[in-house]
Design a protein around this nucleic acid. Structure first.
Lengths: 204, 204, 204, 204
DNA sequence: GATGAATGAGGTTTCATTCAT
DNA sequence: TATGAATGAAACCTCATTCAT
C-alpha cells in the first residue's frame, strides 16, 4: 500500500466514522423522542436524508444502533466523571463538580438522559455490556462520593443509598427539564449540587 | 327486572370488574418486565390462562390497557399522598411520611415504578390524561412539601427544584431496588427521607 | 370438559390438521416448481387462497415449512418400503416390489422427488433430522437389497454401491419423468426393476 | 495500434480470461456448498479476496454467473464424452469408458455434480440454453449407448429409459460420494460401469 | 481497474385486532 | 362468554446492482 492509497483509505475511514457518528446521534434523538420501538428505521433514515438500506452500511441492526447509542452516551458520562476525578479539586468540590458536569451531560449532550430508560429493550447479551459500563460509571461516582464524605461516619448501606439518591435526583432531571426553561443546565446543576451536598453536610 | 336477575347482573358485574382488575395487574407486570412494545397480547393472555380473543371482552385495545394501568398506578400514588395530606401529623412529619409511603407504593404495589417510564408510548390523547393525573400527584406533593418548609426562605425555583430532586431520587429507586435486597421498602424509605429532608428537620 | 366441548375441540383439531396438511402439500408443489428460495410465502398463500399472515397459524417459518414437507415426504417413502419389507413375498420379489413402489411414490405422491434436491437449504439442525430420516430409508432399502442377493458372493463395497446405483437411478427419475409421457409410473417401475435387478433374478 | 500496445492488450485479455475463469470456479464451489440463492455476491468476492464491486468487471449478473458455471461444467462433460466417442475402442468398451469418465468429471472437476440440481433457478432464456446443452450431452451418451447394445433387441422405450437409469445412477453419485471415502472416483467408476453394463449383458 | 457507498425493491415475519361459531 | 382462525398493515432486513471517485 503506497502513501496515496493509505491516505485515501484513511480519508474514507474518517468519512465512515463521521457518518456513523452522525447516524447514532440522530438515532438517539429519535429514540428519545418516540421511544425505541415506535421509532422506525425509516424515521431515522429520513431524518438523515438517506435510504433505509444505506443505514445498514453503518450499523448491523436496529438493536445494534440502540446499543451503540447507549455505549456512546455512557462513554460521555464516564469521561466527564473521570476528568473530575483526576482534577486537583478538594474532595468536596470534586463531588460538587461531578454532579454539575453530569447534569450538563445529561441535559445537553446526545440525549443521554432519555436513553437511560431503554436498557430493557436490548437483547440480553447487549444489556450485559451496557450494565457493565453503567456499573463503571457508578463505581467512579461512588469513589468521588466516598472521598467527599470520608470524614463523616456513615454505614455502608447509607453511603450507597445516598449515592443512588443523588444519581436518581440527577437522572430524573430529563423528565422535567425543558431546554426552553428559565434555568440553564449549569444553573440547575449548581442548585441541585447545593441541595444534595447540603444534605450531607447537615449530617456531619 | 326482578330481584333475581338484578342480583345476577350485579354478580356478573363484580366478576367482570374482578377479572378486569386482574388483567390490568398482570398486564402491568408484563409491561414492566418486557416493556410495552415487546410484550404481546398473547404474553398477557397466557399469563392469565386465557386466549388473546377473550382479552378483548375486558379491554378495548393494548394501548387502552397501558393507559388504564397508568391511571390505576397513579391513582394509588395519589391516594397514598392524600391520606398523608389529610392526616393530623405536623407538616414536617407529613413530608417524611409522604416520602416513605410513596416509596412503599412504588416498590411494592402494582409495578407502579416501572410504568413511570412508558408514558411516551401512549397516543397523545391518553398521554394528556396521564400527565394531568401525574400533575395532580405532583401538586399534592408540592403542597405537602411547601407546608413543611414554610418557615424557611427559599425562592420559588429552589422549592420546585428541590421537590423534583426528591421525587427523582424516589422514582429512580425501582431502577436499583431489588425485592431480594437486605432493606425493606420501608427501611429504604426511612433512610431516604432522612437524607432528603434531614437538614430541614434539624432546623425545624 | 363435557362431551360437547370435547367433540368440538376434536373437530377443530381435525380441521387444523387437514388445513396444515393441505398447506404442506401445496407448498411442496410450489417449492418443487420454483425452487425453495424463488418461491415466496405469497406464492404459497395465493395458491391456497389465504393471506400470508394466516399461513403462520400453521407453520412457524418458511424453513419450517420446507422441513415438514421433507419429513412428510420421507415418511411416505419409508412407509411404502416398510409395507414391502413386511409383506410375505420372497426376497427377490420384495426388492422388485420395493423399487416399483418407490418409483410410484416419487413420481406421483407429494412431489417427493423434487424435494430430494433441497436439503441443502435447511438450517443445520433441521438438516440433521432430515438426514437421519433419509438414512432410515436407506437402511431399510439396504436390508431388502441384502436379503435379495444373500446367495451371491459380493463384497461390502459392492453391495452398498450397487444399492446406491439403484437408488440413484430411481431418484433421478423425476428429472426426466413427465406425467404426460406414454409410460405410467408403474410401467416405468417394472422396466427399471427389470433392468436394475434383472440379472440377479436370472441367476436366482 | 502498434506492436507494443497490441501485445499489451493481448496480455490483458489473458489476465482477464484467467480472472474470469477463476471467478467462475470459485462461484461454482460456493453455489455448490450453500446453494445459489443462499450464496451472496459477497461470499463469492470474499473467497476471491476482491470486493463485490470488482466482480462486475467480469460478470454481468449473479444469474449470468450461474449460467456460465453451468455451461462450463456441461462443456467439460461433453468434451469427455466426445473424446470417448471418437476413440478407437470397441462399442462396448466405449460405453464402459464413457461411464467412468463421466463419473470422474462429476466427482472431481468443477463441482459439476452439485450444479446439476440448480437449473431451475435460472431465468427461462438461460435455462433453455442449458437444457439445449444438456440435451447435447445426452444425445452423445445415447449414441454411445445405442452402439454398445446394437446387437440386442430392445424397444425404443427400453433403450432411452435404460440410458436414463445409467445417467441417474451416475448423477446421483455426488449425493453420497465423499472425497475422503475409501474408493477413488475411478474405482467407483469401474464398479459402477461393471454393474450397469453387466445388467445389460444379462439381457442379451 | 478497483472500491466503498448508496439504493430500493422485495422478502419474511409479527401482531393487534376482528369475527364466526 | 370464550376462542381459534383470519387478516393486513407495517416493520426489519438483505442484497444484487450501480456509481462516483
Amino acid at each position: 500500500m503506497n502513501m496515496k492509497s493509505f491516505e485515501k483509505k484513511n480519508f474514507r475511514q474518517i468519512r465512515y466514522e463521521d457518518k456513523k457518528s452522525q447516524i447514532l446521534k440522530n438515532a438517539a434523538k429519535i429514540f428519545a423522542k418516540k421511544g425505541f420501538e415506535k421509532a422506525t428505521m425509516e424515521d431515522v433514515s429520513n431524518e438523515l436524508l438517506m435510504t433505509k438500506g444505506s443505514l445498514y452500511h453503518y450499523i448491523k441492526s436496529k438493536e445494534d444502533m440502540l446499543f451503540q447509542c447507549h455505549m456512546k452516551a455512557l462513554g460521555m458520562s464516564i469521561r466527564a466523571l473521570e476528568e473530575t476525578l483526576n482534577s486537583d479539586l478538594p474532595p468536596r468540590m470534586k463531588l460538587h463538580k461531578a454532579i454539575i458536569r453530569h447534569i450538563e451531560v445529561i441535559t445537553t449532550e446526545f440525549v443521554v438522559g432519555a436513553l437511560r430508560q431503554q436498557e430493557l429493550l436490548l437483547p440480553k447479551h447487549m444489556q450485559e455490556k451496557v450494565i457493565k459500563e453503567r456499573d463503571k460509571f457508578e463505581r467512579i461516582f461512588l469513589k468521588i462520593f466516598r472521598e467527599a464524605i470520608k470524614t463523616e461516619h456513615s454505614n455502608k448501606n447509607n453511603i450507597k443509598m445516598t449515592a443512588y439518591a443523588i444519581l436518581g435526583a440527577i437522572n430524573w432531571i430529563p423528565r422535567w427539564y425543558s431546554a426552553e426553561g428559565k434555568l440553564s443546565p449549569t444553573q440547575i446543576g449548581e442548585m441541585m449540587a447545593d441541595y444534595l451536598i447540603g444534605k450531607l453536610e447537615s449530617k456531619g
